[in-house]
Design a protein around this nucleic acid. Structure first.
Length: 204
DNA sequence: AAAATGATCAAG
DNA sequence: TTGATCATTTTA
């Protein structure tokens, strides 16, 4: 399988978010390899999107990465506790991004269980296995992604994405937990695979 | 249903 | 310097 190129990322966040579904997110760390198939994403469209951190071209140390070139990681801590992993899209000075909200474990799932629950995979119930990566804060914890990876280039060898030609039944819905965002609340910029158990909130 | 928990940002 | 605000998860 081939890595996604910078040309893939250099488009509108809504397009990239939709096409990212079914692709493979890879993290290599200490000789271990985590792979997750992306099941759920959300697009954040920058200056005109009240839900985006870059609304009205707001710029700060935190969201600096979104103003850089596409195909890099924008990572931030939310609610003081959880780490969210985003992919920068569009081009320099157009601050758009795609939040990865869910992945299905493909490789390294034993280590994911340890990262999340300090428990062996065999001792987890099916429900807890689904809980490994069905949320933005969960998948970063499971895959070992931290603030140290802020701004990393996704064409490198540490964190990157692999292409896939597999077709999925993609559903669309409004985004989650952006109640402060005015009219943007209703924009259908969330994408997910229908009936996949590694999606955070199946019915919205 | 609600607490946990801390970085970030804008106001004073 | 302080207080309000979160692109969430967990527990009950």
């Amino acid at each position: 399988m081939k890595k996604l190129t910078s040309a893939f990322y250099a488009r509108k966040a809504t397009i990239v978010a939709k096409e990212l579904i079914g692709k493979y997110l890879v993290h290599e760390q200490n000789g271990e390899k985590f792979i997750g198939m992306i099941t759920e994403t959300e697009a954040y469209m920058g200056p005109d999107d009240k839900a985006a951190h870059s609304y009205n071209n707001h710029r700060s140390k935190r969201n600096e990465a979104m103003y850089g070139p596409a195909g890099h990681a924008y990572i931030y801590i939310i609610y003081g506790i959880h780490i969210c992993f985003n992919i920068v899209t569009a081009t320099i000075n157009i601050p758009q991004g795609v939040l990865i909200r869910g992945v299905e474990p493909i490789e390294g799932i034993r280590k994911m269980a340890l990262n999340r629950y300090k428990t062996n995979l065999e001792d987890l119930t099916q429900a807890k296995i689904h809980n490994l990566t069905n949320g933005p804060g969960k998948l970063t914890q499971a895959m070992g992604i931290t603030m140290n990876d802020y701004g990393i280039n996704l064409q490198g060898n540490k964190i990157y994405l692999l292409d896939s030609k597999k077709k999925h039944n993609i559903k669309t819905s409004p985004r989650i937990n952006i109640n402060y965002a005015g009219e943007a609340i209703h924009y259908p910029w969330r994408f997910y695979i229908k009936d996949n158990p590694y999606v955070s909130k199946p019915n919205r």
